[in-house]
Computed example of a mutant assay.
Amino acid sequence: MPSLPRLEEVTTANLKTALSIRVRPDQEQNVEPVAESLAEAYVHPAGVAWPRLIVDGDRAVGFLMAFLDIDWRADGTLVRSGLWRLNIDAAEQGRGYGRFAVAAVAAEIRRRGGKEMYVTWHAGPDGPEDFYLRLGFRKTGEVSGDQPVGMLEL
């Protein structure tokens, strides 16, 4: 019987495993390394960043970090939640772990009362735009820095 993927909190016990997650070389320009994500989680107010290891059986297959109730405009006028980072290990891609990760973040946002989930991505031919659009995200017409913003109604 195949195992089901699950999320695990990143702890001292699995930190080295989390840091070993690597996307394909052609994807490196699209997502920050896990170490940078964990550093960002550390410097944001408690509870804003939600870093998790994606595990299947006894294998770490990826990493995600959600943002929960973040001050999107830095002035308190717009609060959003969504997927901040998604790193599926190069050897584990194409097995549904990315879809699982998006669904898991959506479930957590719903559990907290959210009705929308946001994501940004690097635009370009090698970027993940098609992946997010296939999952039901729609472009909002906004950009964050130079990245398009997508929204999924929950």
Rank of each mutant, 00 (worst) to 15 (best):
M1N: 14
S3N: 12
P5I: 11
E9V: 14
N14T: 01
L15P: 06
Q27H: 07
V34C: 02
S37G: 13
A41I: 04
W50P: 00
L53A: 08
L53Q: 03
V55N: 04
D56P: 06
G57K: 06
A60Y: 09
V61C: 01
G62Y: 06
A66F: 02
A66N: 07
F67A: 11
I70T: 15
W72V: 01
R73T: 14
D75I: 10
G76K: 08
G76Q: 00
G76F: 00
T77L: 12
L78M: 13
G82S: 07
L86S: 02
D89N: 07
E92H: 10
G94I: 03
G94A: 01
G94P: 00
G96W: 04
Y97E: 05
Y97W: 08
F100P: 02
A101N: 11
V102I: 15
V105N: 07
A106T: 14
A106Y: 00
A106I: 05
A107I: 00
I109P: 03
G113C: 09
G114S: 11
M117G: 07
W121D: 01
P125Y: 04
D126A: 12
L133G: 07
R134S: 14
L135M: 14
F137H: 07
F137L: 10
K139S: 12
E142C: 05
E142R: 08
G145V: 06
D146R: 07
Q147T: 10
P148W: 00
V149Y: 03
V149C: 09
M151R: 15
M151Q: 15
L154K: 05
